[in-house]
Design a protein around this nucleic acid. Structure first.
Lengths: 214, 214
DNA sequence: CTAAAAACAGGTATTTATACCTATATTTTT
DNA sequence: AAAAATATAGGTATAAATACCTGTTTTTAG
């Protein structure tokens, strides 16, 4: 069997090392592992190199798992993605699957389950761990709330402005950069604060950090 | 240096393997590791064998970390315990420390930090990671500042000011609350930004969120 | 004991943010 | 086709933050 070229994305060194060790001590599959700390790094690597499989942690700083998944689809990077999560929240699972994740397993999975998932996905099948499958079966179709858009109705422009404000840019600097008036930027900023319920730019920054807009 | 006989308690195989690998690939300390899945198993092992150190996950099924810690004290098992946690909730940290935990670190710790913590604790010192220490400073009025050393040399007053700025309070509001001049608050804010290298209050908020001062 | 750092606070000036107002062209939704 | 939301941007005014200056008192460290 051919060596699997795996991109492993998780912000915890502990988890990366653990999975690496587990995969090295089994004989079903032969894996070469490249590691990434967070989504941003993963995207950079996925653009440069050709992987057979990506294992993506759901909860990460800088760029979370779901956002990374979306970004990969945007970039038309068609590498199958296995999501790895600490939590079994239904919303996250649905969000991941509806954004093209090939599988979803929990971090308490055994080595056996992880390799099974990897093999399935390499064969272009989907894989859900039993626990995850059960959640989806029992709680039927409610909606898939996309993290920020649906909850706060932020526009792409607004998110762009947020990300620049969080880089410590002033309204004037942002305006100059985007070739729009400082006033327009102010307008966007105020609209954003209104939408998310922030009293000042401070609340805006907290919001941004919380939702991984950086 | 003598071999440390470590009992590692975590319900995630991934984390146990990861820590095992990490500890094997460093040379500062020599460790023999016994693993346990959850608190109940840990207590059984601790009664049978003599360990030098216990690393205890906070969130576990069957018997969680804090309960295990309590149970160990009840049984007069005096092995030092280093708590390992995914979350930085103040209550958990206080609960752990007041029940005799010798240290508390987060799962995103580096290998270096983990070994540092282990060495400290083996010397019967306490060890708190910076993130954890800052949570305690911020929410305590004037308790135990001796434990705390942070890399930015922030004073307690400065951390207090940060925590209020992050609550979206203005300099004037903070001044009124603390019965000091708005100017003094401005002075503190500027000093803080200088120390942490922030260009504006935005950078200050990002710093605060990153270090769990909220 | 002396020197350094921290906490305090006033002055002045400039820049930035916030709070209101207004309006128009474009895009999206119904 | 009409209505709603978005992105644009100007005016005016106030509040807040930032950048300099200056100083005193208290606390901490060498």
């Amino acid at each position: 069997m051919k060596k699997i070229n795996l991109l492993l994305v998780d912000d915890h060194e502990l988890v990366r090392k653990g999975l690496t060790l587990m995969l090295q001590t089994q004989k079903k599959i032969d894996v070469h592992i490249t590691q990434a700390n967070h989504g941003k790094e993963a995207i950079k690597l996925a653009k440069e190199q050709d992987f057979d499989l990506i294992i993506l942690d759901v909860n990460m700083p800088v760029l979370d798992g779901i956002s990374t998944l979306k970004k990969l689809k945007e970039l038309a990077i068609m590498i199958p993605v296995l999501m790895l999560s600490m939590h079994k929240e239904e919303d996250l699972i649905r969000d991941a699957l509806s954004n093209g994740a090939a599988g979803y397993i929990l971090k308490n999975s055994s080595l056996d389950e992880i390799t099974k998932a990897m093999i399935s996905i390499m064969k272009r099948d989907r894989y859900l761990s039993n626990e995850v499958a059960e959640i989806l079966i029992n709680h039927t179709n409610d909606e898939v709330p996309t993290l920020i858009q649906n909850e706060f109705n932020l526009t792409l422009r607004e998110i762009q402005i947020i990300s620049m404000l969080v880089k410590e840019m002033t309204s004037k600097e942002i305006g100059d950069y985007l070739f729009i008036s400082k006033r327009t930027v102010d307008g966007h900023r105020n609209k954003i604060m209104e939408k998310i319920g922030a009293k000042s730019a401070v609340g805006l920054v907290k919001f941004a950090v919380k939702y991984g807009i950086e």
